[in-house]
């Protein structure tokens, strides 16, 4: 068994809203095997986006520990002279691809330029950028600007951008949330096929049960004590640890 790509232990996050503090995540623990896909589900406000932000270091936890690609982070690390934030930055730059619902692309750059920029930042060759766009059916649109293409095309370009950086882990926050059903399926197809092909990990937050069902694992944050559960998509050979 390979080392888990993500290991979460006793992770807690609260938000202060005025005088009250809302606990979004409490004592969450789970581990995701390399190359596996995980769907985060739960009602709005259950902490899906927060968990994704914690997993890429865009937010800091109150308590608990995180291990991503073997790099360990603990609550309070951020206080240590920004060392944790620099390590997180390095991880995001090279290994973690993040896809939001929309606005993943720099508006001043064409689709192709966006993909090339992301590859460059990740230290990957830029030459395959056009190929990635072509594989996602955007060859014709490579020189268009984000505001000149449809929402689905933008999201596919975002996927091309993420795959062009050759990531170890993809974090996707409602990647199809702003798309119609048909387009959403299209984008999801691309995402899963490329993910399986590249063997990277995938964690996506979604409300869509069909999309969640296509992941191997599922973590329902709406539960009091969320636990990682295998879905029918998981080949029986690879049972959870």
């Amino acid at each position: 068994m390979t080392e888990p790509v993500v290991q979460v232990t006793g992770l807690s996050k609260r938000f202060a809203t005025g005088a009250d503090a809302v606990t979004v995540l409490a004592e969450l623990s789970f581990a995701l095997p390399a190359g596996a896909s995980l769907a985060l589900t739960g009602r709005s406000g259950s902490g899906k986006s927060t968990l994704l932000n914690l997993l890429c270091g865009l937010e800091a936890p109150e308590a608990g520990r995180l291990q991503v690609f073997g790099e360990a982070f603990a609550a309070g690390d951020d206080g240590v002279a920004g060392d944790a934030s620099a390590r997180w930055a390095r991880l995001r730059r090279r290994a973690i691809g993040v896809v939001f619902q929309d606005a993943n692309l720099m508006p001043a750059l064409t689709l192709l330029e966006n993909v090339r920029l992301r590859a460059t930042l990740a230290g990957q060759p830029t030459a395959p950028a056009a190929d990635w766009l072509a594989r996602l059916g955007l060859a014709e649109l490579a020189n268009r600007y984000p505001d000149q293409v449809s929402g689905g095309q933008r999201q596919r370009a975002a996927l091309a951008m993420v795959f062009a950086m050759n990531p170890g882990l993809i974090l996707a926050d409602e990647p199809t949330g702003s798309l119609d059903h048909h387009t959403a399926d299209d984008v999801a197809d691309s995402l899963f096929s490329l993910q399986q092909h590249s063997g990277c990990g995938l964690i996506l937050a979604t409300h869509d049960p069909a999309l969640a069902a296509r992941c191997q694992y599922r973590l329902d944050l709406g539960h009091d004590r969320p636990e990682l559960a295998a879905t029918s998509a998981l080949p029986s050979a690879a049972a959870p640890p």
């Binding site: 934030s85 620099a86 390095r90 730059r93 993040v98 992301r118 930042l121």
Partner: peptide, 8 residues
Amino acid sequence: LLSVWGLT
């Protein structure tokens, strides 16, 4: 987004 893309 620059931060998301890993710029410090």
